[in-house]
Nucleic acid binder design. Sequence first.
DNA 1: GATGAATGAGTATTCATTCAT
DNA 2: TATGAATGAATACTCATTCAT
Lengths: 200, 200, 200, 200
Amino acid sequence: MSDTIRTPVQQRSIDKKNRIIQAGYELFAAHGYFSTNTAAIAKRAGVSTGIVYGYFHDKKDILVAVLDIYAEHVFSPFLALFDELRAPIDLPAVIDRVLVMAEDAHRNNAAIHEALNSLTHVDKDVCSKFMALEAEVTQHIVAALRREGLQCEHLTEKVHWAFESVQSHAHECVFDQHAYIDYSLMRSIERAQLLKLFDC
Amino acid sequence: MSDTIRTPVQQRSIDKKNRIIQAGYELFAAHGYFSTNTAAIAKRAGVSTGIVYGYFHDKKDILVAVLDIYAEHVFSPFLALFDELRAPIDLPAVIDRVLVMAEDAHRNNAAIHEALNSLTHVDKDVCSKFMALEAEVTQHIVAALRREGLQCEHLTEKVHWAFESVQSHAHECVFDQHAYIDYSLMRSIERAQLLKLFDC
Amino acid sequence: MSDTIRTPVQQRSIDKKNRIIQAGYELFAAHGYFSTNTAAIAKRAGVSTGIVYGYFHDKKDILVAVLDIYAEHVFSPFLALFDELRAPIDLPAVIDRVLVMAEDAHRNNAAIHEALNSLTHVDKDVCSKFMALEAEVTQHIVAALRREGLQCEHLTEKVHWAFESVQSHAHECVFDQHAYIDYSLMRSIERAQLLKLFDC
Amino acid sequence: MSDTIRTPVQQRSIDKKNRIIQAGYELFAAHGYFSTNTAAIAKRAGVSTGIVYGYFHDKKDILVAVLDIYAEHVFSPFLALFDELRAPIDLPAVIDRVLVMAEDAHRNNAAIHEALNSLTHVDKDVCSKFMALEAEVTQHIVAALRREGLQCEHLTEKVHWAFESVQSHAHECVFDQHAYIDYSLMRSIERAQLLKLFDC
DNA sequence: GATGAATGAGTATTCATTCAT
DNA sequence: TATGAATGAATACTCATTCAT
């Protein structure tokens, strides 16, 4: 089956493969994985249905590629932020940056996030990829904080908790928009909670 | 289309409808909405494929009914807990109860939660139902706390934040199980954060 | 359509065409005509998919070329045998030679024989090619026997019958291998029957 | 439940299944297995494409059913003939009957025979079914001949050889029709050879 | 000539929904 | 009401053939 999957080296092919991934990204985000068909992906990418299978093993393989892009978009800014972190750590500033970045990431990627996350329980590959991403980010951040001399008990668990909290909060702010909630207050609460958490 | 949908009044019919919902519940939880077909639901419910359309408008209508059940299972224990709450409020005890209940609820309903949640972005009905549930729970809890005399600024936002945090935490504990995380530590962190939040 | 089909004259091109035919031969034998695709043939031949259509009109054209090779492999040894035949004819010896050759031919070519034979009823070209081959062999043998003075009534029909019988027998011995059959006995029976046939 | 209501429904279904098999039979015979698509089978059977998969697991499953019908058509007359055989055996008469029956069977079933036989080397199920049929017929005939007192060395091998010979001969007479062959002579030759074989 | 990426019609199979009984 | 056979549109994937380079 996968004998003929091309790993494109020419720019034209790389572009084409990327257009397919981008098309998949947009359509999965808009309608979900199951409600998007390969013909629609091909059409939006401006390629024939056949060539999709020249670049991808099957439909799920497109999903995995989309997932990689998604991970790049969403997580790499955080990794970069912590790579550049230098002691002395200005915790309130870092938290503010993180919260803004998280909301931005969600705003730009929330739809695809849900589309992908929904497959976590249906597909093992997607599940383990998501788990691996969470692990990578948590451990990357923990390492950066330690490197810059943060002394804090249970740092891994705290970072992990913070990470989940930030994600959940960003999702809520971007998405849910309950009328009875004052979202600027919500943001202060989140900020305060994170500060308390790392007040080691 | 839905002209002929019955609202069953006889016990036999009510049972049959409930068996269909239950079958949908189990199968959606196990394989997701899109990977479950109506024939399988009918079979598991012990009814014919045709009669499913006597009780439900279409497949999504079963989903909506499942969602109602889910809400009942997951949220009503919380509502009951806060209905029975009496001053003076023993906050640490309440938080402990809530955390245990949340994890239990997730353990028993996590699969269906994900299956349903994944449709939030695909289906408007599911989305608004989820929103309405969150609103109901938050406001119910806020009312209970106020009734019993809790003085706390921004109570609605705090409860909402807490609710999201508890959900996210429970999901994490039940589902993700990263090897590098000590989950009993995670639980203490969650508890501590909630205590700090309501230390008004 | 076939305007651009090349009849290669350069050695390199002849080699390339032959490699394609050989690849077709092997793959048709292994998986049958319909389960072999042109990309696989090209790959095995070590050429590009496109150039296949420089040497062959279409996929079936490869089949026809394979058929020619097959005929060469299977029938020419018999033709050679009878070309070299000289009076006085040692019938038992000839029959023994023929049976051994037929089984060898089948052993080496049985798969392709079946693959090709199966197309007899689907494709007119294949059908008539097979018919022509049978005719050629029968008439060649008849001519050789007559030339060397064999006096025998209905020689053409007898040779034709013998030819079919030998083919069918060889196929059986090579292929079917029923557990309840003693194949060395089968060979004696075949030999005896042929001897009786030509005991003119 | 109530047999009187269900029985006609079942009959209707049996008819429908048979129509699908018959359609498969005709189309496989006309165009071969690979050149026949399921839509065409459904159309010829006068049913929808979907219901085909209500009666058959997949396309190959239709083939297997067709094979069963074919076996019934082709082989059962021979089995019946030998079941009714009574001593003293009139060998020439039996051989004449067999030859006529074989040609009839081929005339009526030759196309499907080839279509099926061609899959022998592509599909294991078809292969073993064909082998089993040959075994059954050979052993059935051997048993009948022994039962009626035929004394003959190597009877199994002889019957098997005869069976192959008759098949091959019938195929030739019905199908190949070479201009240079006098087919009534061919028939006499076949008859004579069989008589010599069983002249024990 | 040669390449191999690209095409797009074609195929087996599924499944929400309907309907004759 | 209830059945489950029947429908047919929809879908993922293939492959003979073409064509830009």
